[in-house]
Design a protein around this nucleic acid. Structure first.
Length: 546
DNA sequence: CGACTTTGACCTGCGC
DNA sequence: GCGCAGGTCAAAGTCG
């Protein structure tokens, strides 16, 4: 892309501030909280079970710890009992009464412990039941949300396009924030109930699947719209269809949700409904960016693309190229490719939309990654609504979760260390950062030992209006291929190999989403517990103001 | 000749 | 209302 001559739009080139500068400034604003947040795994108790301080401590883990704890007690008891009963202490041998008393005492203790164990088991079973109930309620609520939104929309006189359009156009950041806030609250509620990580994952996956199905149907319904009369009319109708489509995709699920009708809270205000409607529109606009070092003009993602435009973007001397998926007529998927202004070896690829056609095997992984990441982003990963302050969480949990979910995957031993969330981008965007630009002195061998004090998630807001600002930095993705991860740049071959690995295994994408979702859910709690420690970081907007 | 790229023109949203 | 910036269109050119 560098050698592409700038067209007329070269006049767009300006000497204004560089938004991508701000994007990179995130890297330098981290306040190390890793140590504070790491090692936070406290002793698990029933109080912890409800405290929600460590949501990642799943019910399964808790059950395991409890069981282990009891087992240890039992072992200890067994050892003590054995010693006492087979003791050669002459005082006991010589005193039968004392021996009987001690024996009875031990038996009583054993019985008490067994009773405790049973109680614990019952309690755990009860909590698991509560968790299942909560999950099913949550699903029912979600389905009702879509249904209710659709009903509300069709009741609106004349299906006010203008209003819808304005809802989408205005206050996007705020809408997105509200969405994130609501989602964070939902996550909090779930984790307070100590959802098991497995169940949480399946829940999140079902959300993603639901949204993907919904988006797929939306896309299908949009095909005929592409041939509509004027552009403005077509776009307006697309928005209208977007707002209508959710019901179609969820009708099948409504029957299930009806079983829980009496348990589902009602929406009290039209504002709730409007927000939900806006949410749907935002889902369709979510974007996923991939940052990768590559000499090629495009990263290979398995799809066929046709270039339909090129523009000079403000603040970047490198032109931005626009591509459209040509694997099926009317496929709404588009992508933008642009080199990073600071480091032109970095290629930014931004995907938008979902394919409306079967994908080749090589493209499935990337497509599902981007789709799932976008859905994940909008379905509850926003953990902060504070424009002025970011959050930092230790990524060790991310490593842990990812390792658990991708432990057989060849790419499982990377260390995502940075995540930045923003509400200020035109549309919510999540960036998968496959570069190694950060200066973490990371020893790849340390990954499994979680000894990376600088390896953190940075959840911050940004005012960048050009570069996507939700970044999942995966700097150590290629650590096995590098002798010095911090300094070396990844070869094109390595990029291609990694891309191929990602695209070849959809489960990796799913695992990635699961891990991200888990971690970001946890972040919400950790931020609360650490805000008083002056642990927030300044974000790029602060940086800009200063 | 069909698919793709290039590039000037155009449209739209947004801020002032 | 005007200008700017991002995004898209479509005619012309290029390539295999």
């Amino acid at each position: 892309m560098d050698n592409v001559p700038a067209g007329r739009s070269g006049g767009d080139l300006n000497n204004g501030r560089d938004d991508s500068d701000r994007d990179h400034d995130h890297d330098h604003e981290h306040v190390s909280l890793g140590r504070i947040l790491s090692g936070k795994r406290s002793v698990v108790s029933e109080m912890d079970f409800f405290a929600g301080e460590k949501p990642a401590a799943t019910s399964k883990e808790i059950l395991g710890v409890k069981k282990e704890s009891v087992q240890n007690e039992d072992e200890q008891l067994h050892i003590n009992t054995g010693l006492n009963l087979s003791t050669t202490n002459p005082s006991i041998i010589n005193n039968g009464t004392s021996k009987n008393i001690k024996k009875n005492s031990q038996e009583n203790k054993l019985a008490a412990l067994q009773a405790d164990l049973e109680k614990t088991s019952v309690e755990n079973q009860r909590l698991k039941g509560m968790l299942n109930q909560m999950n099913s309620n949550y699903h029912a609520l979600q389905m009702h949300l879509f249904t209710y939104m659709q009903r509300q929309h069709t009741r609106r006189p004349g299906n006010d396009h203008t209003q819808n359009h304005e809802m989408i156009s205005n206050g996007k950041a705020r809408q997105f924030m509200d969405l994130g806030q609501a989602a964070a609250k939902r996550d909090e509620a779930v984790s307070i109930q100590s959802a098991s990580s497995e169940e949480t994952r399946s829940k999140d996956f079902s959300i993603v699947e639901s949204m993907e199905i919904s988006n797929q149907k939306i896309n299908n319904s949009n095909i005929d719209l592409e041939k509509s009369t004027t552009d403005s009319d077509r776009r307006r109708r697309i928005v209208e269809r977007e707002l209508e489509s959710p019901e179609r995709s969820t009708q099948l699920a409504v029957a299930d949700s009806n079983n829980n009708n009496n348990k589902v809270p009602r929406f009290n205000s039209s504002r709730d409904v409007e927000q939900a409607t806006q949410t749907i529109a935002m889902v369709r606009k979510a974007r996923v960016s991939v940052r990768a070092r590559s000499e090629a003009t495009m990263i290979s993602d398995g799809c066929q693309w046709r270039k339909y435009g090129q523009k000079m973007a403000k603040g970047n001397p490198c032109p931005r190229a626009y591509y459209r998926c040509t694997m099926a007529s009317g496929c709404p998927v588009r992508k933008q490719v642009q080199r990073c202004a600071q480091d032109r070896t970095i290629l930014m690829t931004t995907y938008e939309g979902n394919h409306n056609h079967p994908l080749p095997a090589a493209a499935v992984g990337m497509a599902s990654t981007t789709s799932a990441a976008a859905s994940m982003l909008l379905s509850g990963s926003m953990v902060s609504t504070d424009h002025q302050h970011g959050l930092i969480i230790n990524s060790n949990d991310f490593h842990h979760d990812l390792a658990k979910t991708t432990h057989h995957h060849p790419l499982s031993n990377f260390s995502p260390s940075l995540a930045s969330l923003s509400a200020s981008a035109p549309f919510p965007t999540v960036t998968l950062d496959l570069t190694t630009h950060n200066n973490h002195n990371h020893n790849p061998n340390q990954f499994h030992h979680q000894q990376m004090p600088l390896s953190q998630f940075h959840l911050a807001s940004s005012n960048s209006s050009i570069l996507p600002s939700n970044i999942l930095n995966l700097p150590h993705l290629f650590s096995n291929h590098q002798t010095q991860a911090a300094a070396a740049s990844v070869s094109t071959d390595t990029i291609s190999a990694a891309t191929a690995a990602i695209t070849a295994d959809p489960s990796f994408a799913s695992a990635l989403v699961a891990a991200i979702t888990n971690i970001m859910g946890n972040t919400h709690h950790q931020s609360h517990s650490n805000n008083n420690n002056n642990s927030t970081t300044r974000n790029s907007s602060d940086n800009k103001n200063s």
